[in-house]
């Protein structure tokens, strides 16, 4: 499932990051790598960017950047 489609409060585990280049590296160096648990903590007033919790930090990214991140929704979450 695409990270973009996640609702506020939903949690999941990153299953793939489907982009290389500067953006792909940037996403990874901020800790968004496969196997990492994430939780959507909110969105900006105009719905974009999105705010999420990962490794005990808060990250933001734009919707069109979230497009490249695939997430597996945790059962029972």
């Amino acid at each position: 499932m695409n990270l973009r489609t996640l609702q506020s409060g939903q949690t999941g585990i990153i299953s793939a990051v489907k982009i290389g280049g500067p953006l792909g590296l940037r996403i990874r160096e901020m800790g968004l790598v496969p196997g990492t648990k994430i939780r959507i903590t909110g969105r900006a007033p105009l719905y974009d960017p999105v705010k999420l919790r990962i490794n005990g930090q808060t990250l933001t990214l734009r919707n069109n950047e979230a497009n490249f991140i695939e997430v597996r929704i945790e059962e029972g979450a």
Binding site: P22, L23, R26, I27, M30, L32, P49, K51, Q57, T58, L59, T60, L61, R62, E65
Partner: peptide, 11 residues
């Protein structure tokens, strides 16, 4: 390209 907005919101 615009610079990615992947950034940390510090506590």
């Amino acid at each position: 390209e615009s610079t990615p907005f992947v950034m940390e919101l510090p506590p």
